Simulated assay, not measured.
Amino acid sequence: MAMKLFMAIAALAASGAALAQTPDASRFGYGPVFAGHGPHASVAADVIIPEGTVFKHSFDGSERAEDGQNRTLIAAARFLNMHAAAGVPRENMALAVVVHGQAAQDLLTAEAYASRFDGAANPNAPLIAALVGEGVRIILCGQSAAGLGLDETADLLPGVEVALSAMTAHALLQQDGYTVNPF
């Protein structure tokens, strides 16, 4: 568990999160939404989240995880964990992850993933199941799926939705009041 936490923190550092040169794993933990995903730290913040705030937020992911879990999926779990820990009611948070490009391969079933990556297990499957179980929408760009030769029905993990394109998904989400994560 400690190694998993350290790897997740290292992924945060690599993704541009504001961490010291050497991550201090002692400040990070999991929960309250996901017990094993989305590490976050308690922070004495100056910017207060007003009572009654509702988050409708989307993430955009195009880079496939080279080793471990996809950083964009981790970020969505972290968003839920840290805001719930900060007192935002779970029912006040709606999230979507729009996936395109090479990251589409992180959404594959065990069979489809293994056939593309020398029999390897998809390390993203448990995180995707947890996110979908919490109502997070995982939306795949249909154009990326077609370009990568994916079968939109048979190759995708349960709960993954397919949009005409990532651009379409983002436009529809924004029309529904979702903000887009800028990084």
Rank of each mutant, 00 (worst) to 15 (best):
A129Y: 03
A110T: 13
M93F: 04
R64E: 15
I74L: 08
A169W: 01
I74A: 09
V97D: 05
V136A: 12
L140Y: 01
E63S: 10
L107H: 02
A114R: 03
L127K: 06
P158D: 12
V160W: 01
V99D: 00
R90G: 06
L95Y: 05
G142W: 05
A130C: 11
T72A: 10
M93V: 09
A146Q: 12
R78A: 13
S115A: 07
E66A: 15
A44N: 14
Y113C: 00
P123C: 04
G149T: 09
G142I: 07
L140F: 04
E66S: 13
P158N: 13
I138T: 04
I138L: 04
N122P: 00
A120L: 09
T72F: 02
G159M: 02
R64Y: 05
L164C: 06
Y113A: 00
R137T: 07
P123A: 10
M167C: 12
A85V: 03
Q69K: 07
A114F: 03
V99H: 01
T109M: 13
A125E: 15
N124C: 10
M82C: 15
A166N: 11
L148C: 02
Q102S: 12
A114I: 02
A154Q: 12
A96K: 03
R64N: 05
H83T: 14
S115M: 05
H57L: 07
E66V: 12
A171P: 06
P123T: 08
T168L: 15
L108M: 10
E111A: 14
I128F: 07
A65C: 06
H83V: 07
P126S: 11
M167W: 10
V88Q: 03
A75T: 06
V88Y: 09
Q143Y: 03
N124M: 11
G61M: 04
G87L: 10
A75V: 01
G61R: 02
Y113E: 00
Q143K: 08
S58V: 02
G119M: 04
V47P: 01
F59A: 14
E152H: 08
